[in-house]
């Protein structure tokens, strides 16, 4: 700040505090609701201060869940979400780093074609090709399976672009020195390029983990078997029944549990998260 203007400084903090309140308030309400008993919602207004049922609600949802909604205990859904998010993040990084390596460090016929085929995935989010993609997965017999939940989401142009961008900044001489030192392409990849990409991989992993965790429409379509429910899609099923038969405290417990893992990842790995986010979009 250049000049000292106390009023402006106060205003600045007021704006920020208001912003934080707007961002936090909906989640605060959900948290409060998740600490009450079912009876506390019958008075016509949600409670605004925490209640005594915190541990009871969370324990109940984690171990039993709303069986009336046809949903399994939340720990199963959380585990499914974790598996799916990890597989998607790892898979995307794996296939993207290899294809970016091929595109940057080799010249071969149809290189441009390969690049464009990958690039085109940017233009085809799952929402716009939902029917035919579902049909392909159904024809392959991948409904209600971890493979069906993850593989169709694994192709990623953004991750490939990020790695390509990074590889282009690696000095040419490094690869030349490695070749003079007797390293072949895979050895160079393993010994030099992969260790150099560590930070990028970690940053990308944070972003892709969140991407995998928040998937909703796709799991909703390809799973009918409750053993494969993810927490994010499970919540919608819980909420749908809650409207008819209010069990707000339990729904909000599930909401808190669905939010917690990715939000913690963002907060604990903020530096990597910001790097991953700002750089994948460039």
């Amino acid at each position: 700040m250049i000049e000292n203007r106390p009023i402006l400084a106060v205003l600045t903090h007021l704006v920020l505090i208001l912003g934080v309140v707007i961002v936090v308030f909906p989640v605060y309400l959900a948290f409060v609701a998740s600490t009450h008993g079912g009876g506390d919602f019958l008075r016509g207004l949600v409670p605004l201060l925490p209640g005594p049922n915190l541990f009871a609600n969370y324990e109940f949802m984690l171990t039993e869940g709303l069986t009336t909604a046809g949903a399994p205990p939340l720990w199963i859904m959380l585990l499914n979400s974790l598996i799916i998010a990890l597989v998607i993040a790892t898979g995307k990084i794996f296939i993207s780093i290899l294809s970016a390596y091929a595109i940057v460090f080799f010249k071969f016929p149809f290189r441009m074609l390969a690049f464009w085929v990958i690039f085109i995935t940017l233009m085809l989010p799952v929402e716009v090709r939902i029917m035919p993609t579902f049909k392909v997965v159904a024809d392959l017999g991948l409904l209600n399976s971890y493979a069906g939940l993850t593989i169709p989401l694994i192709a990623s142009a953004t991750a490939t672009f990020l790695f390509r961008q990074f590889f282009l900044t690696v000095p040419d001489e490094l690869m030349e020195a490695a070749r003079v030192d007797g390293a072949g392409p895979m050895k160079f990849f393993r010994d030099i390029l992969l260790p150099l990409s560590r930070t990028n991989i970690a940053a990308l992993f944070v972003i892709l983990f969140i991407y995998g965790w928040v998937q909703y429409l796709w799991p909703l379509l390809v799973t009918t078997d409750s053993r494969y429910y993810t927490i994010v899609m499970g919540i919608k099923r819980l909420a749908a029944t809650a409207d008819a038969e209010p069990q707000w405290h339990l729904v909000m417990t599930a909401v808190m549990l669905a939010m917690l893992p990715p939000v913690l990842v963002v907060i604990l790995m903020q530096r990597l998260f910001v790097k991953g986010l700002v750089e994948t979009e460039k």
């Binding site: 070749r179 003079v180 030099i192």
Partner: peptide, 18 residues
Amino acid sequence: PAERDIAMVFQNYALYPH
């Protein structure tokens, strides 16, 4: 290059940073 039994010193040194 590796089979030619030569060694090279580069302008930017090209040391493996890690």
